[in-house]
Design a protein around this nucleic acid. Structure first.
Length: 443
RNA sequence: GACCCCAUCGUCCAGCCUGGUCAGGACACAAGCUUUUCAAGCUUGCGACGCGGGUUCAAAUCCCGCUGGGGUCGCCA
């Protein structure tokens, strides 16, 4: 039975790197018909918080990474203590002013990593060092090995120890985690051996780097999964982007659902090299998902953003909203862009920037605008066809170039000189607002 | 510094295991088409096997070294 786990620490939000680790664990479990365990590593009582636990659970659900079992390490302190004391009795660990410390044996440790192959360590390299960097020697002149803390002086267990005890007790078959954990794997293997447990198989995922090549940080883009949600990203798009970061179905496919991905997912095919996170590509992919999404679904996702902005209230007209959405769905990298670009539809009055005013309103078109407004105001059915016909007739009557009027009018109606076709925009805005904004543009 | 990991376009990924197709796709960038502006879409272009040695008839692919990047060295997780 394949069983994997994702073990975040609730000392911060679920970040993009953790999400990728969780995703790969989840995919591996699903592809192998195994189980996915979520283990909250809240042994650091000071730094852990309920708020972060809730945020992590919510983010996991948002991404669609449901778990089969959920554990909290803070509820298992007695178990860890019991195993530590067992090691003391067996002479493999010792007390030191309240703490329990594992005696580090001098030995070679082999790790078989599913992604990287064999990795060799020698515990002789885990030496105690002075502040000046020199190694500490014993009476015979041999380096003193650094023993591992199992239980801290305050009685709380150390990370490595809980991890080993839990993985063994929870019967985790594969430990899939970030590459930053390679270095503490040999120490954990020593613990497995001391406890008489068989170590699981390991797979160390390449890290995700920021666009500057360094660590992923706030400077290089959002880090928390919840920020991506708040910034208008689609969960499926983020998952799609993340699963292609270090893995590929092998056929140059860029858009792939998680359910299709698990059909061909193989942990052995995961890349070894770290990947740089590209916000540009994520935005492009997100736009692809938005463009191909059902209108109803898109409206549903947009509603919370619109309500928050006070653009609509709870009894909004979903038919109207859907027509606005249709107009914009092909040009949205994120849901937030809809708020920015289509906001003019929902507010009573718009403001026109000084620069746009200068650029498009330097010629006084008050007469033309009002003339058009009058003609539009008597249109019975304010649809695309009629709006365009009236507009064309007006430009013909006035002997004016279409383009000379189109651009200033777009600015007058939307507050921007970029956007969809003018007549579609008018229809979506509605007759009343269109006429009003035309009349008031030159006031 | 010590130990460990890694190395194909600016970025992500395919090709590597099982040497032999002008090294392929995507993002970004540039140009064109379309057009009522902006997107979207379509077409085209730009652009990489880090370096040096081997092995071989033949190396992106196998081996070694170098260089470069990253990770870890907490009674944090």
């Amino acid at each position: 039975m394949i069983k994997v786990r994702f073990a975040p620490s609730p000392t911060g939000y679920l970040h993009i790197g953790g999400a990728r680790t969780a995703l790969f664990n989840w995919m591996y479990a699903k592809s192998q018909k195994g189980k996915f365990v979520l283990r909250i590593e809240d042994t650091d009582i000071q730094r852990s918080s309920k708020e972060f636990v809730d945020e992590i659970l919510a983010s996991m659900k948002w991404l669609g990474l449901e778990w089969d079992e959920l554990y909290f390490q803070s509820e298992r302190f007695e178990i860890y203590k019991e195993y530590a004391q067992k090691l003391v009795k067996e002479g493999k660990a010792y007390d030191s002013s309240g703490a329990i410390i594992l005696k580090m044996p001098k030995q070679e440790v082999k790790i078989y990593d599913l992604i990287r192959g064999e990795i060799n360590f020698d515990t002789a390299n885990f030496m105690v060092r002075c502040e000046d960097g020199l190694t500490v020697l014993d009476e015979e002149g041999n380096p003193v090995l650094k023993d591992e803390v199992l239980i801290k002086a305050d009685g709380s267990p150390s990370y490595s120890f809980c991890c080993v005890v839990d993985d063994a007790l929870m019967e985790i078959s594969h430990v899939i985690r970030g590459e930053d954990h390679i270095s503490n794997t040999p120490k954990q293997i020593v613990m497995y051996e001391a406890l008489g447990f068989t170590p699981p198989k390991f797979a160390h995922l390449p890290l995700i780097m920021g666009e500057d090549g360094g660590r992923l940080s706030k400077r290089t883009g959002a880090v928390a999964v919840s920020d991506y949600k708040a910034n208008g990203f689609i969960a499926e798009a983020l998952v799609n982007y993340l699963l292609l970061l270090g893995w590929s179905p092998g056929n140059n496919q860029e858009k792939i659902s998680i359910s299709n991905a698990i059909k061909t997912f193989s942990i052995k095919k995961v890349n070894k090299a770290a990947a740089v996170f590209s916000m540009d590509k994520l935005r492009w992919l997100n736009g692809q998902y938005i463009k191909q999404m059902e209108d109803e679904k898109l409206v549903e996702l947009l509603v919370p953003f619109l309500i928050e902005k006070n653009f609509i209230n709870r009894d909004f007209n979903s038919q109207n909203l859907k027509s606005v959405v249709r107009l914009y769905k092909a040009r949205l990298p994120t849901l937030l862009d809809f708020i920015d670009r289509a906001g003019f539809v929902f507010v009573d009055d718009i403001t026109i920037e000084e620069s746009l005013y200068k650029k498009y309103f330097s010629d006084d078109r008050k007469k033309e605008f009002c003339f058009l407004a009058e003609r539009l105001s008597v249109v019975e059915v304010f649809d695309l066809n009629n709006a365009e016909q009236v507009f064309r007739a007006v430009t013909e009557d006035l002997g004016i170039n279409t383009a000379d009027l189109v651009h200033p009018i777009r600015v007058a109606l939307t507050g921007s000189d970029i956007g969809p076709g003018l007549f579609e925009t008018m229809v979506v805005l509605g007759k009343a607002k269109t006429v009003k904004r035309l009349k008031e543009a030159f006031k």
